[in-house]
Computed example of a mutant assay.
Amino acid sequence: MIVGYGRTSTLDQNAGLAAQERELTSAGCKKVFVEQVSSVDVTAREKLAEALDYIREGDTLVVTKLDRLARSVAHLVEILGAIEAKGATLRIISMNIDTGTATGKLLLGIMGNVAEFERSIMLERQREGIAKAKAEGRYKGRKPTARAKSDEVMKLHAEGIGGTEIARRLGIGRSSVHRIVSSQSAAAG
């Protein structure tokens, strides 16, 4: 059986997910697992785990692109090991790679290393750009959204509302509520 797996990083990428589903169906996938979750948080990828559990000997797991499946070579090796342990193969449509062949296995290893190398270079350039912007006084960082709501946090806290409920109402983290209340209480006391 040909099984597909599609993923986008955010809920805003619905069109990308739909395009992956169409491409996987066109590739002959009889069952498709899709999810919207960051590849960085590998523990949250429930549909990938389901797809890996679902495949059987002789099956092929199909993805549209390598970056939809794994972010690092280590993660790719782990996933590939799980696929091979089931007696299945992996096919990546955009690269025309099929691990059912020796050439496909070789190319996948090479491409995985190249993808990881490109990502590390991109992150390095990003860090350099941030450092340069900071040196020039142009980098402000992320706006402190929780601190901007300090007055609202303290008002709700004074009304006896708990930290979890305050966080929910204001759309901030519970730890941010605790930090604001603690710092305001320390400053007042």
Rank of each mutant, 00 (worst) to 15 (best):
K143I: 10
M1P: 15
I166H: 02
S175H: 12
H75T: 14
L107E: 03
G104N: 08
A74G: 09
A19I: 02
P144M: 13
H75M: 12
L61R: 00
E35S: 14
R91K: 14
G162K: 14
G6T: 01
A148M: 10
D59H: 07
E23L: 15
V181P: 06
R71H: 07
S120C: 07
A49I: 00
V73C: 06
R168P: 03
L107Y: 04
V181R: 08
F33W: 12
L66P: 00
V77M: 11
L106H: 12
K155V: 11
I110G: 04
V32P: 10
I97C: 04
L80N: 13
G173I: 06
A133I: 08
K30W: 03
E165M: 05
C29A: 14
G28E: 13
G58W: 00
K140D: 04
I180G: 05
I93H: 02
T64C: 13
G6Y: 01
G141A: 05
H178E: 09
H75Y: 09
R45N: 04
K105A: 07
A133N: 09
R68I: 11
K105M: 01
N113A: 15
M111P: 00
T10N: 07
R147W: 11
I166N: 12
L170T: 10
G104K: 10
G171E: 06
Q36F: 08
M1H: 10
A49M: 09
A188D: 09
L17Y: 15
L108W: 03
A146I: 02
V40T: 11
R22P: 02
L123P: 02
A85V: 04
Q13F: 05
Q36S: 15
V63G: 06
V63A: 05
T103P: 01
Q13W: 11
A51E: 04
A133S: 11
V177N: 06
E78W: 13
Y139S: 00
K31F: 07
R179P: 01
E57T: 11
E46Q: 05
A133W: 13
Q36C: 05
V42P: 00
T145E: 10
F117A: 12
K65P: 00
L24F: 04
R22T: 13
L24S: 04
A82T: 14
L123D: 12
R68S: 08
G87L: 04
L107I: 11
V63I: 08
G163R: 07
I180E: 03
S38E: 06
S176D: 05
A44I: 01
E152K: 15
L156S: 13
A44L: 10
L123Q: 12
P144W: 11
L17D: 15
S9E: 08
G163T: 09
G129R: 12
C29Q: 11
Y5L: 06
T103N: 10
D59K: 07
L76P: 00
K47V: 03
T43D: 14
